[in-house]
């Protein structure tokens, strides 16, 4: 199954850095998300998007992870040639990540 079934996401941009939150619908799934979505795994799944370092911050009380993707926006919103220069759609790429069936 896909992450879309147990979590929701929102993307934000600052310069050439994108951040994507991953929030469990059910806080009991937080441990599973924290276990599966290591920065290395996210960087692999978002190959071609996350071109730099990937950092992860945890907010267990909200069932949330926050991923910070460096060098992910084609040089930054104001000069990128990308159709989605803000990377607003990237949250949807995160939600496509496959997770084990339960």
């Amino acid at each position: 199954m896909r992450l879309h079934q147990i979590a929701h996401c929102r993307t934000g941009d600052k310069g050439n850095i994108s951040n994507i939150s991953v929030i469990a619908y059910d806080r009991r799934d937080f441990a599973l998300l924290a276990d599966l979505l290591t920065p290395a795994h996210v960087k692999r799944c978002l190959a071609g998007i996350a071109n730099g370092a990937v950092e992860r911050y945890e907010l267990p009380q909200l069932g949330a992870l926050n991923f910070v993707l460096h060098n992910a926006l084609g040089g930054g919103v104001t000069r990128s040639l990308a159709l989605d220069a803000h990377g607003k759609c990237l949250a949807s790429a995160m939600l496509e990540i496959e997770i084990p069936e339960r």
Partner: peptide
């Protein structure tokens, strides 16, 4: 859920949201 998405919107380290008046800390919200 809507508030959680907005909490992290354009935030990097939730414990250090740099502002002119304060370093805001959202990490235990």
């Amino acid at each position: 859920a809507t508030c959680s998405e907005q909490l992290l919107y354009e935030v990097h380290d939730p414990a250090a949201y740099l502002q002119p008046d304060v370093i805001a800390d959202f990490s235990r919200v």
